[in-house]
């Protein structure tokens, strides 16, 4: 019994982390049909922004709840600075190209960003460790959990629900959905599609930075944290069906739970399991769990 509870809890925490990264990825793909490899680097930059604002080393850190708004502020700054810049001066040059080409463009951007990170912050790891103890500990049977981990789960739910509500309940959201559905018709109906792209991409950068900023307390922030995160969230997005927020949530939960199960019962298979899940899902649902070949929705 204990075992299954821990699998559930650990899987959920891991899944929440994955979902926080994947939601921005899936949104940008849904609207712009760009599988953004640079999302990982932006995730790392979000973590670095948090580290810079909160303190960056364990001795001189902003303690207390003030750290949380600072982390949010960092994410907003990253989004406002990098989002429009990348969209207007890089991605816009390549619109209309094949999906694979766009993916490679973002791969190039991520290579550049990784070196830029090293130029700005150096290679040495930074820490945002103080906020990790903000929410105390939670005791569960024989196990101790850190309250902050559950805060991350709550944050993932909040971000997911808020984004979904925004898309379904607001005018702007409905415009975005229209663009997702058919950019050409939307343009004919008077939608300023390039502005939708700009906002969506900037929001995607914001989501990446939020994921990085709010997971940074449990990590050592190094230039390469994005590389591993990005390939996992790709798997999540593909399992979910590319461009679907619900799909990304289910994909993240699936990956999180199967990884936790593997670690408990068959630790040798930790790496396999994620790709095995992806292969198995694709075997039975070639378009991913929530993907629809004809019209993509999110």
């Amino acid at each position: 019994m204990d075992v299954f509870l821990t699998i559930l809890v650990d899987g959920t925490i891991y899944g929440a982390w994955l979902f926080l990264i994947a939601i921005g990825l899936t949104l940008v793909f849904g609207v712009m049909k760009i599988l953004n490899v640079a999302h990982g680097a932006l995730y790392a930059i979000g973590a670095y922004a948090a580290a810079t604002l909160v303190g960056g080393n364990v001795i001189e850190e902003v303690a207390g709840f003030w750290a949380l708004p600072l982390m949010l502020l960092g994410s907003i700054l990253v989004a406002v600075i990098l989002g429009p810049f990348l969209e207007k001066f890089v991605l816009r040059l390549f619109y209309g190209r094949d999906e694979v080409v766009l993916l490679l463009v973002t791969f190039g951007v991520s290579l550049i960003l990784e070196d830029v990170i090293r130029m700005i912050w150096g290679v040495f790891s930074q820490y945002v460790a103080a906020p990790y103890s903000l929410f105390g500990n939670v005791e569960m049977g024989p196990l101790y959990y850190v309250g902050y981990d559950f805060f991350v789960v709550a944050l993932a739910v909040l971000v997911g629900v808020a984004t979904s509500l925004f898309l379904s309940r607001t005018i702007m959201g409905k415009i975005v959905l229209a663009v997702i559905h058919d950019a050409e018709i939307s343009r004919a109906m008077g939608v300023n599609v390039s502005r939708v792209y700009l906002y969506t991409f900037t929001f995607g950068v914001f989501l990446a930075a939020v994921a990085g900023a709010f997971t940074s307390p449990m990590l050592a922030v190094t230039p390469s944290i994005g590389v591993n995160a990005i390939i996992l969230s790709f798997a999540v997005v593909v399992i979910g069906g590319m461009g679907s927020i619900g799909g990304a949530a289910v994909g993240a939960a699936l990956v999180g739970l199967s990884r936790a199960t593997a670690i408990n019962f068959w630790p040798e298979a930790e790496l396999f399991v994620i790709y095995a899940v992806m292969a198995a899902v694709l075997l039975f649902r070639p378009q991913g769990l929530f993907g629809e070949p004809a019209q993509r929705r999110i």
């Binding site: 694979v100 790496l271 790709y275 095995a276 292969a279 694709l282 378009q287 991913g288």
Partner: peptide, 23 residues
């Protein structure tokens, strides 16, 4: 049976499984 990104990613999954096995 697969097209586009799904074809690309299915291949990726298979190659990562080989990678994991070789490790």
């Amino acid at each position: 049976a697969y097209r586009g990104v799904f074809f690309a990613m299915f291949n990726l999954a298979l190659s990562m499984i080989l990678y994991g096995a070789l490790l």
